[in-house]
Structures are given as C-alpha cells and as structure tokens.
Design a binder for these strands. Structure first.
Length: 422
RNA sequence: GGAGAGAUGGCUGAGCGGUCUAAAGCGCAUCCCUGGAAAGGAUGUUGGGGAGCAAUCCCCUCAAGGGUUCAAAUCCCUUUCUCUCCGCCA
C-alpha cells in the first residue's frame, strides 16, 4: 500500500512502476475514483456538521413542541445523507481494492526485464564444481545413503512429500545449529520461533494477498498457512508504535513454510528442490523510514546470506531481480543462487528484498520520529537458510563412489566428516 | 465443545440514550514557585482524514462491523480477542 497523497502527486512514478514491474494497473482510474471519493466525503461531512449542530440544539430546547419540528427536519436531512453514505461506501470498496493493487516504485538500480531470465548477475563467488565423473542428483545420492525417502514421503504426504532420515535429518539439524551460531555472533539478531497458521490480515499486510491467493493453503476456519516466517514476524508489531531508539529491530525467525506451488506443477517434479512444506530461517528487519537505511540494511542482509553460503563452500552468484520478477511491494530484490551440479546451473536458495513502508502501512507499524511525527517504519527480509542448501551440499560435495563429504564448518555439528554407504 | 464475564485515551478506571468537547487518578510535556530540588499550582497531552497561505475550522475515532434513533461509549445484532468455570486432548 502506498500513500494516496504520494500517488496523487506522482502519478507518473506509479505508471512507470507498473510498466517496469509488468503489472496491469490504471493510475488515472484510481485518481478519478479518488477525486469522486473526496468530493462525496466533503459533502457528507458538511451534512454531518449540520446534524451535529442541530442535535445539540434539540437537547437544549426545553419545549417538546419546538422539538417536533426540528426533529422532522433532521429526519429529512438524514435520509439525504443516508443515500450519499451508501454511494460513498460503494466507492470506498472499489477504492480500497484499487489501493491494494498499486505497485510500489522499484529502485532506479532494478534492471529492466520480463522474468527471472532477465535478472542480472551482480556477483559471483567460487566456480561451478568440477567433477572427474558424471555427478549424480541429490535424489539418487540421498536415497542411496538412506538420507531421503521420497516413496514413503508421497505415500504419507502426497505429491512432493518427503522424509529426511538418518544422516539427511542429521545434516539438516547441523545446518540449523550452524546458522543459529552464525547469527549468535551477530548479537543484534533476536531469534524467534513463529507461527505459520495465520490470520488473513497478516497475509494482506505483507502483500501475499490478495494477489497470491492460489499459492496459499487455507483452512476451513479461514486462516492461511504462510509460506515464510516473514509473515508472522511482520505481524509481531502490527498496530503498534515502536520506540525509535529500538530501531532497527532484527529478527532471525524460524518456522514451517507451506507453498501450494499452484503455478509450477511441471517444475522440479523430482527431489526436494520444490516442496509443499519445509522449514526455514528468515531474517526480518524493521528500520526507520529512510531509504539510505533500507539500502544499507538490505546489503547487510544479503551479505549475511553470502557469508553463510561461503562458509558452506557452495559456489554461488547473486542476481539483481528485474522489474518483471519483483513482487508488487518490493523496491528491490537480490536472489542468491547456488550451483547445482545435477542441473548444471545456479538455483535460488534465498531472496533478499526491501519494501520501504509498503508492508508497514498495511500492517500499521509506526515509530515516532525526532520531529514528533508518527511514521511508518521500513521493512526488509532475506532468507537465512532454506531447505535447499542441503540439496546443494549433497550434490557439490559428492564423491565418485556416491559418498558425501561434509563441509568443514558443519563437521563439529554433524559429528563426522563423510557420509558413506553403510 | 458448553456456561458465564468482559474489551473505554500512554496506564488504572468511572460513565450505561442528549449536559461526553469522556470524570478522577497516575504518567508525560511546558511554565510558575525554589538557591536548586521535592511538595504545591497552571496549562497541555489519542490517532486518522478534510478545507485553508496561515491563524484556525470541520468530520471520524470508547475492540471491529452492521442496526435502532432527530441523537449511541451507553440499546440491539454479528465478528474478533481476553478472562473464569466445566468438558475433551496433548
């Protein structure tokens, strides 16, 4: 959600944003509707003023006879007002829907483009792993080593179901503990375990609704299962005013994540690269309403993900997402993509974005600035560790005999240096 | 799941159709008093929106939404949340 005043004053910026993000949005129609809304509002307010004034007189008029006449007059005014109010209500409904569809303005540095194919590489670390043999896929490797059970996974959980088992589960636990310790060194991150079963308003607030309805699971009671800990974490301060001295607030949130993957039935059908349920550590930050601060923290969050990936020894590159690959609320986004030998390409393991006040305006999260004014805080988030690095480790660290070396940083957590067939 | 009670400003808490522009207290801010402070006194102190160059004025805001009424914090309905008791379960 953007400030309607900002939209009124900068319609061209919104038009440009819609064009760059390849979003179909008619700014002029919104502004026209807004003008109607305001005119009507002023008319209604005028009538209310009259009503309030007369109401006051009625209570002060002693004689019952004098009252009857005024009351009759008020009844007429009320009828007229009621019609206008209905009209206003209709316009408001339309107005609110349109406001939820206004795209946030992408940063100047966001590259042009239609889809993820047009994302631009901004950095590269390490080189694609070289093998003297034909590398196997994580499915083949993990299944053979008893780390993954997809057959029973689908038996129990349906399409894309899986069990991580034995060393598969141990390796994942080692990763969680490694990440916990990594962030423990960065003392300003507060670890949090957050809910995934959430009320609708949080999904609206973070921008996953109304546009992303089909990718979300929904319960018969109307709650949604969130696809990331970001949603609950952002909701933590909903409808609150934060002390400025406490900003920025940095969370390291852990939760279960659910995704219907409705639009990607044909993609990644093998293995656990794309699943309906996984666990994830997410970095979520709230900061003061400053573009400079947002940019600084965005780079910091991105760097954290890079440091983790480097520590794990996984070759990666970072891309700046193009306009067409940005969400409605995102100002800028980096994807970190890790080399996956079985696909001979880089695959996304994390996504860092910032929103300015797009989310916090919807969620009503504010702070009092030095000038005494209440302002919406800025929000950002980035993956700390998803389920995919496990896959990348298995594939990049495989040996010809199908065993898997453990990245040195994980050995203390995992307890051995290699996974071999028993 | 059943029964009951409740939700009022930064906080405590009164009000239960018109005098609510919400009592009182606490807190906070500024000022007076003081050598300085405490105590005491004065004034101010929710948020959102609109009109205006401005001073200022207007509308909304007593959990949320709807209704009754000329008039709602107050009456009715719905929803959400909190608490107590019972039941069920980890």
């Amino acid at each position: 959600m953007l400030d309607i005043k900002f939209i009124r004053e900068n319609p061209d910026l919104i038009k440009e944003a819609a064009r760059k993000k390849k979003v179909d949005f008619n700014v002029d129609a919104l502004l026209e509707l807004d003008a109607k809304r305001l005119a009507l509002l002023q008319e209604i307010e005028g009538m209310r003023t009259e009503q309030n004034k007369v109401s006051d007189e009625i209570s002060k008029t002693g004689s019952a006879g004098a009252r009857v006449g005024i009351i009759e007059e008020m009844r007429k005014l009320k009828e007229k007002m009621s019609g206008k109010e209905d009209e206003h209500k209709e316009i408001m409904k339309e107005w609110k829907l349109a406001m939820l569809a206004v795209p946030n303005v992408p940063d100047m540095s966001v590259p042009e483009g239609e889809s993820d194919k047009d994302n631009q590489e901004v950095r590269r670390w390490g080189e694609p792993t070289n093998f003297s043999f034909a590398p196997k896929s994580h499915v083949e490797l993990m299944t053979a080593l008893g780390m993954l059970d997809l057959e029973r996974g689908t038996k129990v959980a349906g399409f894309r179901g899986y069990f991580l088992k034995g060393d598969g589960a141990r390796l994942q636990f080692a990763l969680w503990r490694f990440v916990q310790d990594f962030f423990a060194k960065k003392q300003d991150f507060i670890p949090m375990i957050v809910p995934s079963l959430l009320r609708k308003e949080l999904l609206l607030g973070t921008g996953y609704l109304p546009q992303g309805e089909e990718d979300l699971y929904k319960t018969q009671d109307g709650e949604y299962l969130s696809g990331t800990a970001e949603v609950a974490t952002m909701g933590y301060y909903m409808d609150e005013v934060i002390e400025k001295k406490d900003l920025p607030i940095k969370f390291l949130s852990f939760s279960d994540a659910f995704r219907r993957e409705a639009g990607s039935h044909g993609k990644d059908t093998k293995g656990i690269l794309r699943v309906h349920e996984f666990y994830k550590y997410e970095q979520v930050v709230l900061c003061e309403a400053s573009h400079t601060e947002s940019v600084k923290l965005h780079e910091e969050l991105e760097r954290n993900a890079e440091e983790i990936t480097e520590a794990l020894g996984l070759p990666y590159h970072v891309v700046a997402n193009c306009g067409g690959d940005l969400g409605l609320g995102q100002v800028k986004k980096y994807d970190i993509e890790v080399w996956l030998p079985s696909e001979n390409t880089y695959r996304e393991t994390g996504s860092a974005s910032y929103f300015h006040d797009f989310q916090t305006r919807r969620l009503n999260i504010r702070y009092r600035d030095d000038d005494g004014k209440l302002k919406f805080v800025h929000s950002l988030n980035n993956t700390a560790l998803s389920g995919r690095p496990l896959v990348a480790i298995v594939e990049n660290y495989q040996e010809e005999d199908g065993s898997i070396r453990i990245p040195p940083v994980l050995v203390p957590y995992f307890g051995k240096e290699k996974i071999v067939k028993s």
